[in-house]
Amino acid sequence: MLQDLFFKLYRFALPALLLLAMAIASAQQNETPEQEEAEEKAPESYEYASPAYRIERSKIKISEPVSREKQQSDDLSHYLKPANVMPLLAGPEDFTTLIKDELTSNSRGVAILLPDWQQGATAANSLNYLRKVLPDQGWTTIAIQPYEKPANYPSIALKPEEQQEANKTSLEQYRQKLSAMMTAVMEKAKSYPGIFLVIAQGSHAALLTDLYQEEKVPLPNALVVLSSYMLTATENETYAKTLAQTELPVLDLSLKRDHPLAIGNAELRQAYANKEMKASYRQRILHNFTAGYYPEESLLREINSWLRYEGW
């Protein structure tokens, strides 16, 4: 019974399938040239849409990345009182300073605060505390928003001679900018009574020492360096010699938990100071819990005690 049913279905289905196949083949053969041309152009129109879309996207203006220095300066202008933010001009470039007047009846002088490069004028690890507390002790504070570190320093050249030459060129260009900046700040500081105290951090302390020794920047009455170092051994040795030979009274502070270069080169600076018999030099290492952050009360106490010892 089932075999008869299957035979009947096969008998009638096979001719139907053959007729369907013949109809499809005939339709493909009878396709008009217009249809063939449309099918051939369809992929081209699809490909044409993609470049047109890319052209539209290319009209979008993408801004260049903003430098760290510009971001920090904009933040200072936005978040702080306008009366405390003062731009100064150093040659063709301007920079931002934060000025806070002393709050006592007896003015002691002006404390100029220079953070390390890549840091802001309100960096929380040391100088921002001094910026806030020194006015209560008779100091007018001028905190500087520094320039960025040279992009090609330290050099990654393969040969040591090429590295030294590239580093020398980069630092010399940066010294010129730093010299113009500090000269402008010292001119501003002269409008206030009292002595001039410069507190510099990191590599800026080393660069400033060179400028003071070469008399390219007006000298302050005293210099405090915080965690100072340079990034190469040759530059650190030159800095230690220059610091020992300068006539400026120097307070050299570093931390127990500090940058490895700051810790390693503190001993080198002390050795050269002893060799040159520099009397107006004091070095102290402060104990801290967080690496790179100065204990606030200890920092202020060390500065005040040293200033009293120096007669200020």
Rank of each mutant, 00 (worst) to 15 (best):
F95I: 08
A189S: 06
P150F: 00
M22R: 14
H204W: 03
E69N: 09
N236H: 09
E297D: 01
S298M: 09
E40M: 06
L80G: 02
P154D: 03
P33H: 03
A16Q: 14
K81D: 12
E102F: 13
L5P: 08
L208K: 00
L261Q: 00
L89N: 08
I142C: 01
Q145P: 01
K61M: 06
K8W: 10
L208C: 05
S58V: 04
L299A: 07
I60L: 12
T169G: 04
R175Y: 03
I199H: 00
A205M: 05
D258E: 06
E102T: 13
K132L: 02
Y79Q: 07
E276K: 15
E172M: 07
P220G: 13
L127D: 03
K159H: 09
P295M: 05
H204N: 01
G264R: 04
I285V: 15
R108S: 14
N304V: 09
A206K: 02
A143K: 04
T140Q: 11
Q176E: 13
A52D: 15
E31K: 08
K41L: 10
N274W: 11
R54F: 09
P115E: 06
K177G: 07
L268V: 03
T234C: 13
D74C: 14
D116L: 04
N30S: 15
N106K: 13
D4H: 08
Y239Q: 04
Q245D: 07
A23D: 13
M1N: 06
V110P: 02
M186K: 01
L307H: 02
F289T: 11
R308L: 11
L14D: 14
T169D: 06
R269H: 00
P51D: 09
T246W: 10
K100S: 06
G311R: 05
R108A: 15
R301Y: 01
W312L: 12
S179L: 12
K216L: 03
L114R: 13
K190W: 11
A222D: 05
G138A: 07
Q213V: 10
K100N: 07
Y293L: 13
E36I: 10
A16L: 15
P65N: 03
E44N: 11
T122S: 07
K241D: 07
N274Y: 12
A13H: 12
L114Q: 12
Q28I: 01
D136P: 02
A124K: 07
P51Q: 09
E310D: 09
F7S: 15
G194Q: 05
I62W: 08
S170W: 06
L226F: 11
E93K: 12
L255I: 02
W312K: 08
Y10R: 10
L17A: 14
I156W: 12
V133Q: 05
K190M: 10
I156V: 14
D258F: 00
A291D: 06
G91V: 10
L300R: 06
A233L: 11
Q71C: 08
G120D: 01
K159M: 11
R269Q: 02
I55W: 14
T104N: 14
I195K: 06
